[in-house]
Design a binder for these strands. Structure first.
Lengths: 187, 187
DNA sequence: ACCTTGATGGCACCAGGTGACATCACTCGA
DNA sequence: TCGAGTGATGTCACCTGGTGCCATCAAGGT
């Protein structure tokens, strides 16, 4: 992290990282599969947190609501303070395409895990997938809004708002098609 | 593509690709930024197709409906036949994590472009972003369903169905929360 | 004391990717 | 017709991420 923030990700060589940590290049690659992996090593913990939280949501809750709850738990704990480690990490990631790439993979993996968690709640496959991915999308955008927004606004709250916005936005999808648009939720 | 399907992506070296194409390694890298880029070179065309289509959607249409129309156009043209090039391409991609990574980036880029197209229609930033990303999510899942589904089912139709499913799934997001589902802050 | 095991170092090596320079074909104006 | 300019390609050297293989070394158990 030090080196990445100092000189940028690309300009930092693995040999340098290893040296700074008092290790060898070879040993570095035994701990991290990638040069990028350093930034994403903690992702596994976040994933289990979310997955457990989805699984533990009140039974009978709608799939998307369970996902919202799971992601909300992560938002309230891991991302509690606005100016902590995650923010610095995000700055590094945003400065480098290779890292954004990895970030997307991490989120995709999270999506798959949440899908499985939903199926564990008895949700059918396609619906689970859709609810999980929609939730991840909401989380991604909420995180973005949170980072760029005022410090006093908690991610937890932003996330909830984003989920509502997502509902509102998608509700108008059939507009302009043959089917009666207003016959739904917004009626 | 030949080499990638024959021996897999990892096992194919750039020198081999260049040789097969009658080129040099150096020349290859002047045409493609990456070894992966070969598979995604056509993505730019798809993107402009979608963006133009979103921009050309009937004015006054809801953001998400415009996105659905844009993606629907792509679905009806580029992905017309179920067993064409895209399917073979997808098989190669699915066999390799590195390529999936790039695929996600491509979709993220598409999302950003669609966001801009929506803003060009007068949609405010946050809503545009959300509608675009939600649309991309729907497209991703629809494509997946289409690939694994029966050949006679057109992507166009699957996409429309997926959009409706997305609407239905997200509509229940406020379930289990205190506030009445329809009553948002800005209501 | 001896052996096993796990973590590390050392080293050679491969492959993706880049920079710098030479070459070659092609066009265009004097 | 010729020579300059331009763009695409080839050649070569080089860096760096990443891996395989073997040596080393400390710790713990017998």
């Amino acid at each position: 992290m030090e080196l990445y923030t100092e000189r940028g990700f690309e300009q930092t060589t693995v040999a340098e990282i290893a040296e700074r940590a008092g290790l060898t290049k070879r040993t570095f690659f035994r701990h991290y599969t990638d040069k990028r992996d350093v930034l994403f090593a903690g992702a596994a913990a976040l994933q289990t947190l979310v997955v457990d939280s989805v699984a533990a949501a009140p039974p009978g809750l709608a799939p998307i609501a369970a996902v919202a709850e799971g992601l909300g738990t992560a938002a309230a704990t891991t991302f509690a303070d606005h100016d902590g480690v995650p923010r610095a990490r995000q700055a590094v990631i945003e400065a480098n395409p290779e890292l954004q790439e990895r970030e997307l993979v991490k989120l995709a993996t999270l999506g798959a895990a949440v899908t499985e968690a939903l199926r564990g709640r008895g949700v059918d496959g396609p619906t689970a997938r859709l609810a999980a991915e929609a939730g991840i999308t909401a989380f991604r955008i909420a995180f973005e809004r949170w980072i760029t927004g005022p410090p006093e606004r908690a991610l937890h709250a932003v996330l909830r708002e984003t989920f509502d916005d997502l509902r509102d936005v998608t509700s108008r999808v059939a507009e302009g098609r043959g089917a009666s648009p207003g016959a739904r939720a917004d009626a």
